[in-house]
Design a protein around this nucleic acid. Structure first.
Length: 863
DNA sequence: GCGGACTGCTTACCT
DNA sequence: ACAGGTAAGCAGTCCGCG
């Protein structure tokens, strides 16, 4: 279940009286006092040449400049003398400050090493220019690609998303007390764990037992004059800004308009009562925008990095020559940041695949404000029937304001879920709010691991170094082009099976990582005696002397999630608000923990270590293989399974308990009953099944009828069929259901022949994953349709667009619905689509489509 | 010139 | 740009075929 749907349902289901909160401080802001400041980000102030912490003082940003003289640096394996003699350019570098000796632990060789810290006056002297010190030192340079603001966070042990006080000019972390009994309960759960584990636990607990404050924020959206409806170029910013809207959490709402010749006031729009202010001069409009932005610590946009803020900056700077220092925005290459605030571009956040997939279960297909709002808020942008430039004042204000309202809404729904999630992810990853909302999950894990390295005095290894010692993966993948073997999918036994119990391993890969002590330094470690400690089913051994850092951290986060937060999220004795909070926490943990395996197999991850990923999936295969074997021994039939699950046919309670106990004892991995089906329909296709729960609810996996590109008329038919099947309680019920399905299909075929479906109903909807010119090898149908559209209309077609097309008897075989007519439709193709979609389910029921309809393929359309 | 067998490409899905 | 495994449909290629 997705994060969002869980929260929604728990809200609905519980209106009972509140219990006294066991964990009063987690959502309770009363424990926060005026001088507690939330750390939102750390940045580098180039003018003062200092790191600066951006704190949220419950209203605005408060800057705290470094007062310790901390400077950027890199680490060299050479001694100071060696550097002086062999690389004299280092000392002569204009940004060079000084050398220092340091001792760091190189985990890969498991030794303390004397190294040299090369300290510079500014970050660019370390790296980023052609003659930076890291370029001079070349292969003798380490830790030289770390962004300085992150380096500062590691060295000071700062945790973004936690509270700090200013004590005698220093930043001091505010400690929130975890209630004693709670602390005891939790630590009690882990009494059997290692010393390393226990030592780290309190630091992790702190992240989740510190209140999450409400953060006031302002959403904005601009409109720009657009001749012929062309999207204006934000780099040039040639057209005037004609409208801007604001919506903030404190209730502030406003629209600013530029007065233009020939624009009418327009009719007042009912229900739209937002204050509108008109400006005669665009420059004044811009200045007012900047003034309002400065009132808020956090500014939200949807695509502000690449459009709104970039446009405002360039317009102010290039057209009106407003000085850089008077514009509250500064531009990076692909980002727009604020001088005195935090800019969160929600487009980037919702684009993050971990967020898109896990949090919102792929509910929005393209990352547009319209799609995301539709999916999460059930609200949409205002539909226009004219060009932006032709709208009346009232119309454009209304249109523009809705965008700000939606943008703000995306952070507010379900009790500020998105905002809470962002704060939790900051705490776990140690990334600033700006970074965590813009960067992918590999950056989150990179930063988390780097932080831990520094905190423990470990050298952060160069990626090439890890690869040169540990090498590539040793297994062979099933799929061409992949680097190593992945999971096992059990060949399904086709048919309908009553009373099926599905068992699955709780967090299989993280459990393997923890149990097998997997980490880049522990796999194939340098110790002689460890070489005997082979991992089953692999060509690797693993360290027996030390706990691997990733095994420790991932294990800890996983254990905490499974043994505490997940249980609390389901605990009916807690208030819905508390459960929501626990659920957001367990979810944030899930995202991080589940991605931990994947990043080790991701070539751009700086701790990339294919053997770790390889050994992880091998451990997973070992677990499921042993489980199948054990099930056979217990005389239970395994019908199907995928990666971490087994479908058991009609098992007894005892058999289930046996398996679970066996797994705990022999594999040391938790096996749980995930779900029980009244019946399951399996075909011979893997990753495809239909299961009906005892209450009639249906679980559909992989079937074409459910896929998002299937035409709507067919999706609807498919779900009608599912409804008929969900009534089936016993074998005898299948026959009448079959009769109903027969009627359903016949009426659809008739409708198809009579052409009474609309083009919308018939459209296949496929995402264009790249721009049109990038399809070189083949031209798929949706690309053909998109090309037609581009050639005969003025539509701009971009990567990420969903193309609606129908199958036709024309030469291309397809037409975009904008250009098609019902008479073009190739009915035969649609009949085939119905047939194959239905076959996936009917196969399992032992019914053939032809038998069902009683018609041979062609006959129906022949007369 | 055309169709069947085949491979590869592309998208959407599962875990 | 976290991973690999699978299904489906189509595009493109090769081969055989008087």
């Amino acid at each position: 279940m997705s994060l969002e749907s869980y929260v929604k349902s728990s809200k609905k289901s519980d209106k009972s009286g509140k219990k006294t909160s066991e964990l009063s401080n987690i959502k309770d802001e009363s424990s926060i006092s005026e001088d507690d400041f939330l750390l939102l980000s750390v940045s580098y102030d180039g003018q003062n040449s200092k790191a600066v912490a951006n704190l949220y003082d419950q209203k605005n940003i408060r800057k705290h400049y470094d007062n310790s003289g901390h400077l950027p640096y890199l680490i060299s394996n050479l001694t100071i003398d060696e550097i002086q003699n062999n690389y004299p350019k280092v000392r002569k570098h204009e940004g060079f400050e000084k050398f220092e000796n340091v001792q760091l632990e190189n985990l890969i060789v498991d030794k303390q090493i004397e190294m040299t810290k090369v300290i510079a006056k500014d970050p660019l002297s370390i790296g980023g220019r052609v003659n930076s010190i890291r370029e001079v030192l070349r292969n003798n340079s380490w830790e030289d690609k770390i962004r300085y603001h992150n380096c500062y966070i590691y060295d000071k042990g700062l945790i973004p998303g936690l509270f700090y006080n200013e004590v005698n000019g220093n930043l001091v972390k505010k400690e929130f007390q975890i209630p004693e009994d709670l602390k005891k309960q939790i630590t009690g759960l882990f009494s059997a764990e290692s010393e390393d584990f226990k030592k780290t636990l309190p630091h992790i607990l702190e992240l989740f037992f510190t209140p999450i404050p409400r953060i006031e924020r302002l959403a904005l959206d601009i409109e720009v004059e657009a001749p012929e409806n062309r999207i204006p170029d934000p780099n040039e910013a040639k057209q005037q800004v004609i409208c801007i809207s604001f919506a903030a959490t404190d209730g502030f709402k406003k629209v600013l308009l530029l007065e233009r010749e020939g624009i009418e006031e327009g009719e007042k729009i009912e229900g739209f009562n937002v204050e509108i202010q008109k400006f005669k001069e665009e420059k004044e409009l811009l200045e007012e925008i900047f003034k309002i932005m400065e009132n808020y610590a956090v500014v939200l946009t949807f695509n502000g990095d690449n459009f709104d803020l970039k446009y405002l900056y360039n317009r102010a700077n290039k057209e009106f020559k407003i000085k850089k220092s008077e514009i509250p925005i500064f531009l990076g290459r692909e980002i727009a940041l604020l001088r005195n605030g935090i800019h969160v571009d929600l487009y980037k956040f919702f684009h993050n695949r971990a967020i898109q997939l896990s949090a919102f279960s792929n509910k929005y297909r393209s990352v547009s404000l319209d799609d995301v709002s539709q999916a999460l808020l059930n609200s949409q942008k205002i539909k226009l029937d004219k060009f932006i430039s032709d709208l009346s004042y009232n119309e454009i204000a209304y249109y523009c304001f809705r965008d700000s309202e939606l943008t703000l809404g995306l952070t507010q729904f379900n009790n500020n879920l998105v905002m809470d999630l962002i704060i939790l992810l900051m705490r776990i990853s140690k990334l600033s709010m700006e970074d965590v909302t813009r960067q992918g999950i590999s950056s989150w894990l990179q930063n988390l691991f780097y932080f831990e390295h520094r905190q423990r005095g470990y050298l952060i290894p160069n990626p090439e170094y890890i690869l040169s010692i540990k090498g590539e993966a040793k297994s062979t993948a099933m799929i061409k082009g992949k680097k190593y073997m992945g999971a096992i999918v059990i060949e399904p036994t086709p048919g309908v099976f009553f009373n099926v119990v599905v068992l699955d391993f709780a967090s299989l890969y993280p459990s393997v990582i923890q149990r097998n002590n997997l980490s880049y330094e522990t796999i194939n470690c340098p110790h002689k005696e460890c070489k005997e400690n082979r991992l089953p089913n692999t060509k690797y051994w693993v360290c027996t002397r030390k706990t691997g850092l990733s095994a420790l951290i991932i294990g800890l986060l996983k254990e905490l999630r499974v043994k505490w937060f997940k249980l609390k999220a389901k605990d009916k004795s807690l208030s819905p608000e508390e459960r929501n909070m626990y659920n957001v926490i367990q979810f944030a943990l899930k995202v991080i923990v589940n991605a931990a395996y994947g990043v080790f197999g991701f070539a751009n991850f700086p701790l990339y270590c294919p053997p770790v990923a390889d050994a992880t999936t091998a451990g997973g295969r070992f677990a499921i293989e042993q489980t199948i074997k054990k099930a056979k021994e217990l005389n239970v039939e395994v019908l199907y399974g995928d990666t971490d699950s087994v479908f058991l046919y009609n098992p007894t309670k005892e058999q289930i308990e046996n398996l679970i106990k066996w797994s705990q004892k022999e594999l040391e991995i938790e096996l749980d009953v995930e779900k029980t089906f009244r019946w399951v329909a399996l075909s011979d296709r893997k990753k495809n099944y239909l299961g009906v729960y005892p209450n009639g609810a249906v679980d559909i996996k992989g079937l074409t009828g459910k896929k998002s590109n299937t035409p709507q008329f067919l999706q609807k038919m498919f779900f009608d069929m599912i409804n008929m099947l969900s009534d089936v309680e016993k074998k005898e019920d299948i026959k009448p259901a079959k009769e109903k399905i027969k009627k359903l299909v016949k009426s659809a075929l008739t409708k198809l022949k009579k052409k009474s479906y609309t083009l919308e109903d018939l459209a296949f909807r496929v995402v264009l994953t790249r721009t049109l010119d990038k399809y070189k090898k083949t031209t798929p149908q949706h690309v053909k349709a998109a090309k037609q559209l581009q050639n005969s209309t003025d539509m701009k077609i971009q990567a990420g667009d969903v193309i609606f097309f129908v199958k036709t008897r024309t030469s291309d075989g397809v037409k975009p619905i904008q250009l098609a007519r019902l008479t073009d439709i190739d009915t035969k193709k649609y009949k085939q689509a119905i047939e194959s979609t239905f076959d996936q389910v009917l196969d399992a029921l032992g019914i053939s489509f032809e038998e069902l309809t009683g018609i041979r393929t062609l006959d129906f359309f022949m007369n």
